[in-house]
């Protein structure tokens, strides 16, 4: 099973870090991919993998651009119509594992239930979902084994959990 991750901090040796954490490849923001929050950035896109990031009101217009491979949700609310649109356009919804691992306990439990609902709906409509750490520092990094367990916690289905952590391989 190959697993992938996205991080927002620049490591000194990306390949060594991926090997250490058990990932096939780690995508680094600014090197392997760009995370865009504005329409203007998307239209200027060339070459690198581009992921949209925004709230559920901003994402519908961003994901319509052909160069966008997936979307990261800001917050924990997502419109079901948006998920259906992403499924039809073959875009990947990327969930942020850091919102679970770095929150305080009450917020974490709330975030867990919200994410589980998103994953549950995605499973039902067969929308592609990926789980990534989006780590902004060394403390927020997780290994592939830990990411698999978090995915398992969200979907309670081992096979789907493995799909979630390997889904980013489709956009590379």
């Amino acid at each position: 099973m190959e697993s992938f991750d996205i991080i927002r901090t620049k490591p000194s040796d990306k390949k060594a870090l991926a090997r250490l954490l058990g990932f096939k490849k780690i995508l680094v923001e600014g090197e392997d991919m760009e995370i865009t929050e504005r329409h203007e950035d998307v239209q200027g896109a060339r070459g690198a993998i581009r992921i949209a990031k925004g709230s559920q009101s901003a994402l519908p217009s961003l994901i319509k651009e052909g160069s966008i491979a997936g979307a990261i949700l800001d917050g924990l609310e997502i419109d079901k119509k948006l998920m259906l649109a992403m499924k039809d356009d073959n875009k990947i919804l990327i969930l942020n594992a850091s919102s679970l691992t770095t929150s305080a306990k009450p917020q974490r439990i709330h975030a867990f239930f919200k994410m589980r609902n998103i994953v549950s709906y995605a499973m039902r409509i067969k929308c592609k979902v990926a789980l990534a750490s989006l780590a902004e520092s060394e403390e927020e990094l997780v290994s592939s084994m830990q990411l698999l367990e978090i995915a398992n916690m969200l979907c309670r289905n081992e096979a789907y959990a493995r799909k979630m952590i390997s889904a980013l391989g489709e956009i590379i």
Binding site: L21, G22, T101, L141, V142, M145, Q146, E149
Partner: peptide, 21 residues
Amino acid sequence: AMLATAFIKELNGRKLGLLTL
């Protein structure tokens, strides 16, 4: 145990992260 280590971000007053390798 592996899952629990992913959520530990502070030990003995120090900020850190734990990776299960």
